[in-house]
């Protein structure tokens, strides 16, 4: 075992009275009295959220207002605390988005179970689920703490991407084989 010989500094008489040290401490605290506050007054002031922050998971729409989730249930499978529950549903063929594979009938995230790990966002092939900036969730009952689909879209908003993957696929199908 390594032994580190510790050399204690020999103190002068003045230092051993501790009075100069206390005086310098008092000077420090006095300086802090007149320096500006470092705290935020929370409900009125909100902290600036840094990029890459993992807040509450939300669902997003594409710029055309189509829900991006196709209920592939990868997030449901990957979710470590099993907070996500998806009920897949068909899209009627005559709907404007009928060419899209599927859509979730129900999409519930239990925020009492969610651990904000971000694996759902990581695994999503459709870029439909994102952990965004919202950090405060509260409710009076357990049922209130489960985010349903409409609430998830309300929180998520629109993702301004320009892939339009499904529209391109539809266009490609209509124009026949490319090769």
């Amino acid at each position: 075992m390594a032994v580190i010989p510790l050399v204690r500094p020999t103190l002068t008489l003045l230092e051993r009275t501790y009075l100069p040290q206390i005086a310098s401490g008092l000077k420090t605290t006095l300086k802090h009295i007149f320096s500006p506050n470092v705290t935020l007054e929370y409900p009125e002031q909100r902290p600036a959220i840094p990029p890459g922050y993992r807040g509450v998971p939300t669902l997003v729409m594409d710029p055309n207002g189509r829900e991006k989730c196709v209920s592939c249930q990868l997030c449901e499978f990957v979710c470590p605390p099993k907070a996500i529950r998806i009920t897949p549903g068909e899209i009627p063929a005559d709907a404007p988005t009928g060419h899209v594979e599927k859509a979730p009938q129900a999409f519930d995230i239990d925020m009492l179970r969610c651990i904000y790990c971000g694996l759902c966002q990581e695994v999503c092939p459709e870029e439909a689920i994102f952990l965004q900036n919202q950090y405060s969730m509260s409710g009076y009952t357990r049922a209130e703490m489960v985010n349903h689909k409409d609430r998830l879209y309300e929180l998520g908003g629109t993702l301004p991407d320009s892939h339009h993957k499904w529209d391109k696929k539809l266009a490609a199908e209509k124009s026949g084989p490319a090769h």
Partner: peptide, 10 residues
């Protein structure tokens, strides 16, 4: 109040 001011709080 004094403790708060010394710790940079309101």
């Amino acid at each position: 109040k004094v403790s708060a001011w010394m710790q940079g709080r309101p």
